[in-house]
Amino acid sequence: MSTCKSAARISTAVRPSSLLPRIQTRHESTTRRHKKLLTVQQAPSYTPTRPEPTLIFNPPSSAPSAYHTPLKFLPQNDKRRALYASFLSTSTQRAHRTATSPVAAPGTPLSASSFLPPTPSAHLPPPVRQPYEKKYHLTDVDIKEIQRLRAEDPDRWTRVRLAEKFGCSQFFVGMVAKNGVKAEKVAREHDRARGRWGEMRREARHERERRKELWGRDA
């Protein structure tokens, strides 16, 4: 189909005469994109500044070793506490003393230093979930009320609704007001839904569970 169309276009092409001169232009789509843009400038940390041999320390990014004990986990009488503290102070001083090259200015990919530990700063990364304080605000009366509502109409007063009403977690509702009959009913419904799964979905869910087990084994 498309070949026919293009053939027709070629045969009937009557080019309008343009007043502009025909000049060959080279766009980024050709040599510049394929060759020149791909030649990345060498990182300044690799460029030797002195003629004599120098040592380059730039380890690849990798997961930290499990055998490294963080400062907080060291016992009080461990010598490494003092060593870490002195190293931290000297590295901070050195970081403040050394000027950053414009290529490695903040905001560029080279800004993260490859030296360990990174420059200490007061700013912590953003939390994955907002941390919250536990309130411990429910009294015995409230708990009795939760139990009464849950026993009265478990279909209306679900764990979610009770948690919203009393401002606690669903886990807490399940802990104080367990409803075995309702739980069995829900489990049966879930089983029925699982029975309707096809082979692909069932295997995919099974694989997902297996992968999740490997999280705790670091595999």
Binding site: A66, Y67, D218
Partner: peptide
Amino acid sequence: GSSLEEARFRAAAAALKAWYLYKPL
């Protein structure tokens, strides 16, 4: 990890390992 949950889970496991694998000098 490839999800926030997985990364959090693995990070907690790594922290526990760092505690358990403490080696005196």
